[in-house]
Nucleic acid binder design. Structure first.
Length: 836
RNA sequence: GCCCCCGUAGCCCAAUGGCAGAGGCAAACCCCUUAAAAGGGUUGUAGUGCGGGUUCGAGUCCCGCCGGGGGCACCA
C-alpha cells in the first residue's frame, strides 16, 4: 500500500531478474484511487470567468436508469472519457457532466409489479449506476448531476411547453395516430420502426385520437439546411438518416375542381409534367375531404371501406405485397389543364398526412397508380415517350425521362423543361405553383402514461385550452402507485380526481387538467443546456452560462437516436434560438456514434443467453482492463464482439506497463537530456503519433503505440541503458499520462510511483521535442518496374537528383537494367521507381 | 426497389496512391523455475472477396459482380 516501501524494494532489487514484480491488483488500486479522487476532485469544471483556459464541453448521452450499467454503457463512457481526459491533459477547462433520463415506462411497469411508486425503483437504480460510474472511473463533474424526474427539472419542461404553446408550436389535433397496444399509449412516428413499437416491439395499430403535437414541421427546412454545419463532423450515415427522415421533395401544387364543390382541391405532385396523363383522382380514405365529397349513393360503401382501413396495423398497411384497395366516391374532378372529367376514388395507398391527402393519378408513369388502375380497370394514358413498352400492356410503369406526348403545349419537351413550362402555365391561370413537401410529420407529444411530465394545460369549458401560469409551475404528479398505474388506455392521471379537478386560471370556473404526460424525449431535448447551470431557478438555464459553454463540442452516443433524440434536440435548439435564448442553432458540433458491444456475432439478449455482465467483467479483470479492451478493440464506430477480444490480455499489458513505471529509479525532475537517445526518440515519436491519433479519434491505434512504448522501455531496462537512465523515466512518465486516457487507475498508481503528484489528471500532456523526431537516415526503397530490388540508407533531406544517381548506381539495380531506363520516378527520400 | 458503408494472416485489427504488418489474440518454440503459474524472449502464416480499368506504382482511385451490415420505402 505504501509507495515508499515499494520504491525501496524496487531500487534494491536485482536488475535483470523479475523478482520485483508484485501482482497487479486492480481492486486495491480502484479502492485507493477512488477515495483519492473524491478528495482531489480533479474533474470539476471551472465557472471562474477569469479562468484563462479554453472551455470545452463534452457530453455522453445520459443513461436511462434501468438496473445497473451494462456493456454498452461501458463502451460509450470509456470512449467519451478518452476525449475528456485528453482535453484535461491538453489544458482545457472541460465540462463533462452526468445525469439521468429518469422518466419512462419501465419504472412504471416495475411499480405496478411491485405495488410501489415508480420513483422508488428509479432512484434506487440511479444510485446503483452512480456507484458503478464512480468505480468505472469516469471523469465526471459530479456537482452538475441532474435527474429529469425531479420536479426541479420537469418544471422547465412545462415552462418550455408554455413557450411553445404561445408560439403556436404546441397544438392539439384529432387524427389517426400510432397506438401501442402493449404499452397502452400513443407513439410518435419516430418511435415506430417497421410498424412495431420501438420500445417493446408490439405491432402498432392506428387509432383516432386527439393529441398534443410539437410543430417540428415548421422547422423542416432549417433542420435540413443547417446540416451544412454538421457536414464532416457527423458521420455521413447519420446525416443521411436525418435527410431521409426529413424527406424533402420538390414538385408542384395543382388545383383540381371537384364537381359540386365550391373550393378547388389541391394535390401535390413531383411530376407536374405528367398532368395530361392523369386519368383518375385519389383521396385518402381518412381525410376529411373524402367524407365531405362522397356521393350519397356511395356513402355506405365508402364508410365500410374506411372502417376496414382503420383496422389495419402499420405492418399490414405497409406490406409491399398487399393488393391495392379502394372505393369509387361517385364524384368527378376536373383536370385544370384540359378540362377532362376524371373519377375520384378513395384508396389507402394515399396518406392523409402527406401532401394534401389527395393525388392526381398518372398510371402510365407511376407504379402505384398503375397497379390501382389495372385492379379497377381505369384508363392508362402515356404522356412521356420513354422508348419502353406501353405500361398499360406490361403492367410496368415508366417513371423515367423522355419527351412529352399527348400533352398539348408540353409536347416534345423533356421532363425538366415540361415541369418548368407547366408550372408557368398553372401559375398564370392561378391553378397551381411550384411546391416543396416533407416526409417529416409533427412530433406527437402526449402519452397516456404516468411517469412523465404532466402537460401543463387546463381544459376549461368556457376558455378552452388554458396554460397553467408559469408562476404555478411545476404541475407535479399526483401520488399514484401500484395498481393505480395499470394501463387502461387512458392516462392514469385521469383517476386522480382531486388532482384533475381545478379552477380555470382564466375565469375561475370549474375545469380539468390535461391528464396526459409528455413524451420523455422532451426531457432529453434540452438537458445538455441545463448542465451549464443545473440549479438555476429563474429559467430552464442561465442564458449567460450556456453562451459560455455551448454548443457541445463533442457528443457521444448511439446511432439509434438518429431520428429521435438528435432530431428533437436540434429542433428544440432552433426554437430556443428563435426565442433569443441561444446564440447557436445547432446543439452538437461534433457527433461520435459508437458501435455496439455484441457477443458471438449477435446482439446480447436474454433469449439467446449470450449476455455479458459489465460488473462481472470488472470484477474479473479490473476497470482499467475492461476499459482498455473496449478502446483497443477497434475503431469507435465499429461493433465490438466480446468473443473476439481479450480483457485478460489487456490486464497483462497493464501489469507490464505498471511494472515499467514502478522500476524507474532516477529521481523525479531529473533532466532527460543526458538520457539514452534511442529511447528518447521512441518516446517523442510515440507521443507525437498518439497526439495525432487521439486528435483523429483513432484510439485503438493510439493504444497500440502505447504498447510499443511500453515494450521499448522494458527493453531499455532489461537490455539497454537500465532503469536509472533518465530516458526510462521520460518514457514511463509519458506512458503514465497517455495511459491515463484509457486506464486511469494504473496511470494514477504509476504516476505516483514515479513520484508525481497530486494526480496524473493534472500532469499535462507531454511536449514533443521536434529535434528528437528527426531521423539521421531513412531506408529508401529502389524499385525496378515496381518490384523492390534494393534498399539504400540515405539522409532524410537528400535531393531527388542525388537519390536518383545513387539508385542508378546500385549494383542490384544495374543487374536488372539493360540500357537506359525509360523513366525514373523519385520520391525522396523514401522511394525510387525505375521504369526500364 | 433506391441509397450508403464494409470485405487485409486461424481471429480482432494497422497501412498521406509508394517495401502489405504497426499492435493484440490464438499457436509453436526458447529462457527463467524443482515444477507450475507469473515474467522475459523468438517465430511463422495473408498478397488484401472476385473480374476489369486508370497509374511508373493500387489494399487504397474508377466500373461491374459476389458476400456482410445499415438506412429509406405505397411519401404522390
Amino acid at each position: 500500500m505504501h509507495r515508499e516501501s515499494r520504491g525501496r524494494r524496487l531500487s534494491s532489487s536485482n536488475r535483470g531478474t523479475t523478482t520485483v514484480t508484485e501482482q497487479y491488483d486492480p481492486k486495491a488500486l480502484q479502492a485507493k484511487w477512488q477515495r483519492r479522487w473524491e478528495e482531489l476532485d480533479p474533474y470539476r469544471a471551472s465557472e471562474d470567468p477569469a479562468d484563462p483556459r479554453e472551455r470545452r464541453y463534452l457530453l455522453d448521452m445520459f443513461p436511462y436508469p434501468s438496473g445497473d450499467l451494462h456493456m454498452g454503457h461501458g463502451e460509450v463512457f470509456a470512449l467519451a472519457d478518452v476525449i475528456a481526459r485528453y482535453w484535461f491533459q491538453r489544458g482545457y477547462n472541460v465540462l463533462h457532466p452526468i445525469g439521468w433520463d429518469s422518466f419512462g415506462l419501465p419504472a412504471e411497469n416495475a411499480a405496478i409489479r411491485r405495488d410501489a411508486h415508480p420513483a422508488e425503483w428509479t432512484y434506487a437504480n440511479i444510485e446503483t449506476q452512480a456507484t458503478s460510474f464512480k468505480r468505472y472511473g469516469i471523469s465526471f463533474d459530479w456537482t452538475r448531476r441532474l435527474h429529469t424526474s425531479d420536479p426541479g427539472y420537469y418544471r422547465w419542461n412545462q415552462w418550455l411547453f408554455n413557450r411553445f404553446f404561445e408560439r403556436g408550436l404546441a397544438y392539439r389535433k384529432g387524427g389517426l395516430v400510432n397506438w401501442c397496444p402493449q404499452d397502452q399509449t400513443v407513439l410518435a412516428n419516430e418511435q415506430v420502426v417497421d410498424g412495431r413499437c420501438e420500445r417493446c416491439g408490439a405491432e402498432v395499430v392506428r387509432r383516432e385520437l386527439t393529441q398534443w403535437y410539437f410543430k417540428i414541421t415548421d422547422y423542416a427546412d432549417r433542420l435540413l439546411d443547417d446540416m451544412a454545419q454538421l457536414e464532416g463532423l457527423w458521420s455521413d450515415r447519420l446525416l443521411t438518416m436525418q435527410r431521409n427522415w426529413i424527406g424533402r421533395s420538390e414538385g408542384a401544387d395543382v388545383l383540381f375542381t371537384i364537381e359540386g364543390r365550391e373550393e378547388p382541391v389541391t394535390v401535390y405532385t413531383t411530376r407536374p409534367d405528367t398532368l395530361f396523363g392523369a386519368t383518375f383522382f385519389v383521396v385518402a380514405p381518412d381525410a376529411p375531404l373524402a367524407d365531405e365529397i362522397v356521393a350519397p349513393a356511395q356513402r355506405e360503401a365508402f364508410e365500410a371501406y374506411r372502417a376496414e382501413v382503420a383496422k389495419l396495423s402499420d405492418i399490414d398497411r405497409l406490406s409491399t405485397e398487399k393488393e391495392k384497395t379502394g372505393v369509387f366516391l361517385g364524384v368527378h374532378a376536373i383536370n385544370p389543364v384540359n378540362g377532362e372529367r376524371i373519377p375520384v376514388w378513395a384508396a389507402d395507398y394515399v396518406l392523409s398526412d402527406y401532401g394534401h391527402g389527395a393525388i392526381m393519378a398518372v398510371p402510365a408513369h407511376d407504379q402505384r397508380d398503375l397497379d390501382f388502375a389495372r385492379k379497377f380497370a381505369l384508363p392508362v394514358r402515356v404522356v412521356v415517350h420513354t422508348g419502353l413498352a406501353d405500361p398499360g400492356e406490361t403492367g410496368e410503369a415508366t417513371p423515367g425521362e423522355g419527351s412529352l406526348v399527348n400533352s398539348g403545349p408540353l409536347d416534345g419537351l423533356s421532363k425538366a423543361d415540361a415541369i418548368k413550362k407547366i408550372i408557368g402555365i398553372l401559375s398564370e391561370k392561378g391553378r397551381g405553383k411550384a411546391a416543396v413537401n416533407f416526409r417529416l410529420r409533427d412530433w406527437l407529444l402526449s402519452r397516456q402514461r404516468f411517469w412523465g411530465t404532466p402537460i401543463p394545460i387546463i381544459h376549461c369549458p368556457d376558455c378552452g385550452e388554458v396554460p397553467v401560469p408559469d408562476d404555478q409551475l411545476p404541475v407535479t404528479l399526483p401520488d399514484l402507485r401500484g395498481e393505480a398505474l395499470a394501463p387502461r388506455g387512458v392516462s392514469p392521471l385521469a383517476s386522480a380526481t382531486d388532482w384533475v379537478n381545478v379552477e380555470c386560471p382564466k375565469c375561475g370556473g370549474a375545469a380539468k387538467r390535461d391528464t396526459d404526460t409528455m413524451d420523455t424525449f422532451v426531457d432529453s431535448s434540452w438537458y445538455f443546456l441545463r448542465y451549464c447551470s443545473p440549479g438555476y431557478e429563474d429559467g430552464p438555464f442561465d442564458v449567460e452560462k450556456v453562451r459560455r459553454w455551448g454548443p457541445i463540442d463533442q457528443y457521444v452516443g448511439g446511432i439509434e437516436h438518429a431520428v429521435l433524440h438528435l432530431l428533437y434536440s436540434r429542433f428544440f435548439v432552433k426554437v430556443l434560438h428563435d426565442m433569443g435564448m441561444l446564440d447557436f442553432t445547432e446543439p452538437f458540433i461534433r457527433m461520435l456514434n459508437q458501435g455496439q458491444v455484441i457477443n458471438r456475432g449477435k446482439a446480447m439478449s436474454k433469449s439467446l443467453g449470450n449476455g455479458v455482465d459489465l460488473g462481472a467483467q470488472i470484477d474479473g479483470f479490473g476497470v482499467d482492463a475492461v476499459r482498455l479492451t473496449m478502446i483497443f478493440a477497434g475503431p469507435p464506430e465499429e461493433d465490438i464482439d466480446w468473443a473476439d477480444v481479450s480483457p485478460a490480455a489487456s490486464q497483462k499489458f497493464l501489469a507490464r506497463a505498471l511494472r515499467v513505471m514502478s522500476e524507474v529509479t532516477s529521481e523525479p525532475g531529473v533532466s532527460y537530456t543526458g538520457g539514452d537517445l534511442e529511447l528518447r526518440k521512441v518516446t517523442h515519436r510515440t507521443v507525437d503519433e498518439v497526439t495525432k491519433l487521439v486528435d483523429s479519434y483513432r484510439f485503438n491505434v493510439a493504444v497500440a503505440r502505447m504498447m510499443e512504448l511500453t515494450t521499448a522501455a522494458r527493453r531499455a531496462i532489461d537490455a539497454g541503458p537500465g532503469r536509472a537512465d533518465p530516458a526510462v523515466r521520460e518514457a514511463a512518465e509519458a506512458l503514465a499520462v497517455m495511459l491515463s486516457l484509457v486506464a486511469p487507475y494504473v496511470a494514477e498508481e504509476g504516476w505516483e510511483r514515479l513520484g508525481g503528484s497530486p494526480s496524473v489528471a493534472k500532469a499535462g500532456w507531454p511536449e514533443v521535442d521536434p529535434a528528437l523526431l528527426v531521423q539521421e537516415s531513412v531506408t529508401c526503397v529502389v524499385q525496378v518496374a515496381g518490384k523492390v530490388r534494393d534498399r539504400l540508407e540515405v539522409s532524410p533531406d537528400i535531393t531527388d537528383a542525388e537519390l536518383e544517381a545513387l539508385a542508378l548506381g546500385s549494383e542490384k539495380v544495374q543487374a536488372q537494367l539493360s540500357g537506359t531506363p525509360r523513366r525514373v520516378i523519385v520520391r525522396a527520400p523514401k522511394l525510387v521507381n525505375i521504369v526500364p
